[in-house]
């Protein structure tokens, strides 16, 4: 089986690709060939021969659908891809758009519709909460400085300034809010989101929906060590019927197909606020395999048409601790990928 994945940027703000590859290799063994689709020559996953078999450069989402199709067609002619698993929020629009075309080529995927993708977007999260009955912190869409001042007046400090696709910063003064607004505008575009700050315990839930309203897997995780970018550097699976119920309600309400992550804040009264809904697996998704519910592998089985029974129990108290690792790379391999946009990992000599 040949599976193409994206999100190989295993840096301090990691994409889920390396974790997805690891989970798939563990479940599907050596019959599996992983094709890494990368945006930059320094994405670490390109140079991980134990997980990745071959890597290709693909155009940034902003290049448009025609360029993406042309590149995937080229890759497919060489690799005969069976399944593609996109792992970035920002590329999903294009991949959803070309799903019928991919199917004609024989490449399968399980992705949300554009409507499902848009509904849970940060811009629309408050409306999403009202529509489906979820508790969402108040927010404001910020296009101008006047919008920012209005948000500050209504939300008060501290508040959370968030980029359209990624990143967030807790701000305690107008100066820091202004700086964050400009930073996220430059990096991810408008609107920037200002969200009410909720004090409490942050819990993340990795889930997998079958597209019919059933949750195949739900794994809640408490962050134990958080980087300055707010990313989990260590975490532990936790129990909680109310967390499982929240995720089940999300899947039932949206009929979500594929992987997702709920970012949840539990306040002192035990109330659960949904801070974000990510439309793909989280970077810590390998923990789901460790906890007994290998979500990427289950996704592949679903895509291949297997009847999947929802998982039951999972291991509570299973931890992950992320670490940095200096992968040694031959300059010739870096040159090969930089110049030609592809690299067979069989040739990588460490």
């Amino acid at each position: 089986m040949v599976i193409a994945i994206t999100g190989l940027n295993a840096n301090d703000n990691p994409g889920p690709g390396v974790a997805v590859a690891r989970a798939l290799k563990q479940a599907l063994g050596h019959d599996l060939r992983i094709v890494a689709l990368c945006y930059e020559a320094l994405e670490p996953g390109i140079y991980m021969p134990d997980l990745i078999d071959v890597a290709y450069l693909i155009p940034y989402p902003g290049a448009g659908i025609a360029d993406l199709k042309e590149r995937i067609q080229y890759i497919h002619q060489r690799e005969n891809i069976n399944i593609v698993i996109p792992n970035f929020d920002s590329e999903l629009y294009n991949f959803i758009k070309i799903t019928p075309w991919l199917q004609d080529l024989g490449i399968n995927a399980l992705l949300p519709s554009h409507k499902q993708l848009a509904e849970r977007d940060k811009e629309n999260l408050a409306d999403f909460g009202k529509k489906y009955g979820f508790v969402i912190p108040s927010d404001h869409k910020i296009h101008t400085l006047a919008d920012l001042d209005k948000a500050i007046e209504e939300l008060c400090f501290p508040l959370v300034i968030k980029g359209k696709f990624y990143e967030a910063e807790i701000c305690y003064t107008r100066d820091t809010a202004l700086k964050a607004f400009h930073h996220f505008n430059a990096r991810w575009g408008l609107p920037v989101i200002a969200q009410q700050f909720i004090k409490g315990t942050e819990i993340n839930i990795a889930g997998l929906g079958d597209g019919k309203g059933n949750a195949i897997s739900i794994i809640p995780m408490r962050k134990l060590y958080i980087t300055d970018k707010g990313k989990a550097w260590a975490g532990v699976t936790i129990e909680g019927a109310e967390l499982l119920e929240l995720a089940r309600r999300f899947v039932a309400a949206t009929k979500w197909p594929g992987g997702f992550e709920l970012e949840v804040m539990r306040d002192a009264d035990g109330k659960l606020f949904i801070l974000e809904i990510n439309p793909r697996f989280p970077a810590w998704v390998y923990l789901t395999a460790g906890a007994g519910q290998n979500q990427p592998a289950a996704l592949v089985k679903m895509i291949m048409g297997e009847e999947i029974t929802p998982f039951g129990d999972y291991a509570v108290g299973k931890m992950f601790v992320r670490y940095s690792w200096d992968e040694l790379v031959d300059l010739a391999d870096f040159q090969q990928f930089s110049a030609f946009g592809q690299l067979s990992l069989d040739k990588v000599i460490v």
Partner: peptide, 19 residues
């Protein structure tokens, strides 16, 4: 009831993840 305690004094609350 759900609190896990080991003989060497390690305590884990599976509902919150605190140890």
């Amino acid at each position: 009831k759900n609190i896990a305690m080991s003989e060497n004094g390690f305590i884990f609350n599976p509902a919150t993840g605190d140890s």
